[in-house]
Design a protein around this nucleic acid. Structure first.
Length: 423
DNA sequence: TCTGGGGTCCTAGGACCC
DNA sequence: TCTGGGGTCCTAGGACCC
């Protein structure tokens, strides 16, 4: 049976979320910034029209605030995450199987449904628009890669009304359309691969679709070979169930200002350890390795640059914040070099395994039980009374190194104190 | 002055073993 | 000076994604 896969995504999702509760910024250029108010990560159409590129450092476009009435927000993940969850729940009603691919994207599998796909797509858009106030686009194809590409067409070619299905076209029309799309638009072709493909004379999506698979495999990798197959309508990438256990957990932040003191760095690393361990327990995993990195960043003089990382194995796989934190601080001592202005640090947990498959040492049983009880209690307190109600002193109280969020909108939907009031 | 964070997958090469 | 072949496992690094 021919597959029908749709990709639905929210248009400039973070900006759309801000606009739900703030209609006054409708029609104005709006951007949402990355953590630390560093880069532009979401742009309204008006902001795009001003020539603001995705990912530019905010300081490069800041003058537009005064000259063109540009409105900006720090990113408010509590809000976006909540709107996202509602959107995904809604989308799940439109297909028997779906995969939440990112905070604003969802694959839906229409295969086998007896429907007019184009009309179904428009129904989805209308529903999400009316129920949540979020504009979406829907792209449909016989593979995930084609669905992603169709979504791009739906987004960039207004006459399709936000819904595009490759199967609406004849084979000849499809070739024409693909010949007009740059190969860089394909899912999996990034800034390194695109120029290499161009050099080989593969410039359009059609060129890539018609490229000999063996040659692609030889010159590149199986990944790109699969992409070519997917463009030809041979699905190679399956829909994945959304509740997957991550294979790796990382926590990191850029600092609000450079860190030069080891004490502050210890606080930062300890606080990342706390958060990473919480996420580890939330997915019922244990880790066998704890890694740390510290960075002065790429934007300083070579002589003042020091980027280093290292890891230690744990003798027994653990999800205990105290163990993970201790291991991280141990690694930090090894990495630490005084005299540098550090801009960022992070930790990662590796060797993840399900919590029930624990490989213990002889004496671990008793300690393990007590540790599990303590962690369960802390997680419950934080769930019920708000994040960081119960925490560890090692993470610091004032946290002067914390990131900047100068213009954070209220958590309209997830905090009683900041609830939006309709009058 | 100011440049995000959290993931995945693949490959090459080294370590180690018989 | 001479120094096999093949397999597995692990890691680092590179590419990509949003």
């Amino acid at each position: 049976m021919k597959r029908a896969i749709a990709l639905v995504d929210g248009n400039n999702f973070y900006v759309s979320c801000e606009r739900i509760f703030n209609p006054a910024i409708e029609g104005r250029p709006v951007v949402v910034l990355s953590n630390n108010d560093g880069c532009v990560v979401s742009r309204s159409p008006e902001a795009k029209a001003l020539g603001i590129r995705m990912g530019v450092p905010f300081f490069e476009v800041r003058r537009l605030v005064n000259s063109h009435g540009l409105v900006w927000f720090s990113s408010n993940y509590a809000l976006y995450g909540d709107i996202s969850a509602r959107m995904m729940e809604l989308l799940g009603e439109f297909a028997p199987r779906c995969e939440v691919y990112s905070i604003d994207e969802c694959f839906l599998d229409f295969t086998g449904m007896v429907i007019d796909i184009n009309r179904h797509g428009h129904n989805i858009r209308d529903r999400v628009r009316r129920w949540l106030g979020i504009a979406t686009c829907v792209g449909v194809g016989t593979s995930k890669t084609l669905a992603k590409l169709a979504n791009h067409v739906a987004k960039t070619q207004g006459h399709y009304g936000g819904v595009f299905d490759w199967e609406m076209l004849t084979a000849g029309e499809r070739d024409d359309a693909m010949a007009r799309l740059d190969v860089a638009e394909v899912w999996g072709i990034g800034r390194r691969l695109a120029p290499r493909l161009h050099d080989m004379g593969i410039r359009s999506v059609l060129d890539l679709r018609l490229a000999p698979a063996k040659r692609i495999r030889r010159r590149f990798s199986v990944t790109l070979e699969r992409t070519v197959a997917e463009l030809n309508g041979l699905p190679c990438i399956e829909l994945e169930p959304s509740e997957v256990r991550r294979g790796q957990i990382a926590a990191s932040r850029s600092f609000g200002r450079p860190v030069t003191a080891l004490d502050e760095m210890r606080e930062a690393v300890a606080s990342y350890a706390i958060r990473a361990a919480e996420r580890l327990r939330a997915q019922h995993s244990l880790c066998k390795e704890v890694g740390v990195y510290v960075e002065t960043g790429r934007f300083v003089d070579i002589a003042e640059r020091y980027n280093a990382s290292s890891a230690v194995p744990l003798t027994v796989a653990s999800d205990d914040t105290r163990r993970i934190s201790a291991a991280a601080l141990f690694v930090l001592e090894r990495l630490w070099r005084p005299g540098y202005r550090y801009k960022k640090a992070g930790i990662w947990l590796g060797g993840l395994r399900p919590a029930h498959a624990i490989q213990t040492d002889l004496f671990a049983g008793y300690e393990r039980t007590r540790s599990a009880q303590l962690m369960t209690a802390m997680d419950a307190i934080n769930r019920n009374y708000g994040m960081h109600t119960a925490t560890f002193a090692g993470a610091g109280i004032r946290q002067p190194w914390r990131m900047q969020s100068a213009r954070l909108s209220p958590r309209y939907t997830t905090s009683w104190e900041e609830l939006a009031v309709v009058s």
